[in-house]
């Protein structure tokens, strides 16, 4: 078909967590501009399998921008050249015939590479487990309507709740800071009355866990928001800082 592309890919290959990895070059031919980036990888992997080699391991699940697993650092940017989307939502029409594309895993001490492009993001799970929940039963769906919540707060909480835990914020940040992720997870609960009761404990525990996992501090560069597929705003980080300061000043944890 006309308009199809031939590309050079430079992909990070690493056998397992212990091995030293390296960039390996691949050629892919006849890629349709309508393919997604992951479909292009499927084509590449089929070629690799036909050659009897080990296909490139990469995380993916929903392929529609909601699970957050498709972590790929493409030409220097998490999820590639477009803003507000995940790798699975990136189409090959964003590239030109003959392009060279460099694909690397997320880089962070807290996200060790397991194999090729697959990283272990369970540090995020442990942060959530440390406090990103409400301990009491908040009832069935209709009960939510029994508590009056100003639309403004409901909207802001919902915006924060769109975070899919993909880790692009960490990947983009020069400090591998997880502050945007944590700020989204704090905000979605801090803005609602159901979340208020445990607010102080929550923010202290989650920040302790975040520090313990080895994520860096926030330098307010804003690179995270620029790369976040859900465009989680910096306003959330300011809220997290406020929550943290007020918890430190008033909580009972001596």
């Amino acid at each position: 078909m006309s308009g199809n592309m031939n590309l050079t890919l430079k992909v990070w290959r690493q056998k397992d967590e212990k091995s030293k990895g390296k960039i390996v070059d691949y050629q892919v031919k006849g890629i349709s501009p309508d393919m997604s980036f992951l479909e292009m990888f499927d084509v590449l992997n089929e070629d690799i399998i036909k050659k009897g080699e080990t296909p490139i391991a990469f995380d993916h699940d929903c392929r529609e921008g909601i699970c957050g697993s498709c972590s790929m650092h493409i030409n220097g940017r998490p999820h590639g050249p477009k803003s507000g989307i995940t790798t699975c939502q990136l189409h090959m029409r964003s590239f030109k015939d003959g392009d060279t594309i460099v694909v690397e895993p997320w880089r962070a001490a807290a996200f060790p590479v397991l194999k090729d492009l697959v990283v272990d993001r369970s540090a995020f799970d442990r942060i959530i487990q440390s406090g990103g929940f409400i301990s009491v039963n908040t009832g069935e769906a209709p009960d939510a309507n029994a508590i009056p919540i100003p639309k403004k707060y409901a909207d802001e909480a919902f915006d924060a709740a769109t975070c899919i835990g993909c880790g692009a914020c960490v990947a983009a940040c020069k400090n591998s800071s997880a502050m945007l992720f944590v700020s989204a997870k704090i905000s979605q609960l801090a803005l609602l009355p159901q979340g208020e009761a445990e607010a102080k404990q929550r923010v202290e525990s989650m920040i302790d866990q975040m520090n313990e996992e080895g994520f860096g501090a926030c330098s307010n560069t804003g690179a995270c928001t620029a790369e976040c597929p859900k465009e989680i705003s910096q306003v959330n980080i300011a809220r997290l800082n406020r929550e943290y300061i007020s918890a430190k000043l008033t909580s009972d944890n001596v």
Partner: peptide, 19 residues
């Protein structure tokens, strides 16, 4: 120092969207 330690291995290509 802590921020450097948070990324022991860097990227080969970086196109950071910040000032």
């Amino acid at each position: 120092i802590a921020n450097r330690k948070a990324r022991p291995q860097g990227y080969t290509v970086v196109n950071n969207q910040s000032s």
